[in-house]
Design a protein around this nucleic acid. Structure first.
Lengths: 121, 121
DNA sequence: TAACTGTACTAATACAGACAGTACAGTTGC
DNA sequence: GCAACTGTACTGTCTGTATTAGTACAGTTA
């Protein structure tokens, strides 16, 4: 479900957070699907439960999951865009396009990549 | 030329590295333009020269600048894409598009953002 | 009741970012 | 030649944060 890369300089909790978010936005985790418990996922990845909790906590703040004490954590359903997040992502997208153009990547390739990213609907 | 955000959790040297790279790929810094010396920029930003050196060093490894001992550091000219970097950027682009689609951002807005990022040619 | 769930702490360790200081070799202009 | 600049390369030191270990408590479920 989630894999860790210890060579990656990014903190483990960020890798987990981003990995889970990716599963949700691509539809691999549907609305109200149950996520593994903090202890179960920690055990599976052989890391500390605190680290999982931190990732879950950030995802809940972002609105991608919701947690219910005693029951578990679940993927949030589709929702209208958080304006802040959308603005942030559009900014990143523009920067990436800038750099790709500098690297002489053609517009056709860019548009193809956009369609790729849209596959999951 | 470069501004630091101490609230940003990202390391200073990464902010400088990414900021300079942005100046280069957007054309604000043309081929063979001279960058500030490590000591001058460090003084201007009120940080340690070692931190600047680290940012410059990474940019040189990436091929965005070149440094000549005794002379200074300069922006590299346009170049054909480093395949590794292009692949990396296309991957990031797809992930961002995925998430934006999940947040119900329409295709028109995505394409508009791509054109925005292409402004500098 | 027992076993699970999320959550909230404290304390200890390890690592990386940033700093200070020093040094050396190449370049430039006087 | 000399002074002032350039990049580069070290040695430390300090601090913040990521991660771990351990414990605890309240809600849920069978």
């Amino acid at each position: 479900m989630i894999s860790l890369n210890y060579r990656d300089s990014r903190p483990i909790y960020e890798q987990i957070r981003d990995g889970l978010r990716k599963l949700i936005v691509t539809g691999a985790l549907g609305a109200d699907d149950k996520l593994p418990s903090v202890r179960a996922l920690a055990s599976q990845l052989a890391i500390n439960p605190n680290t999982i909790q931190r990732a879950y906590n950030e995802l809940e703040i972002e609105g991608y999951i919701y947690s219910v004490p005693g029951k578990g954590s679940f993927a949030a359903g589709d929702r209208d865009g958080d304006k802040t997040r959308v603005t942030e992502l559009l900014g990143k997208l523009k920067e990436i396009v800038s750099e790709l153009r500098y690297l002489n990547v053609g517009e056709e390739i860019l548009l193809a990549a956009v369609k790729e990213g849209e596959k999951h609907d």
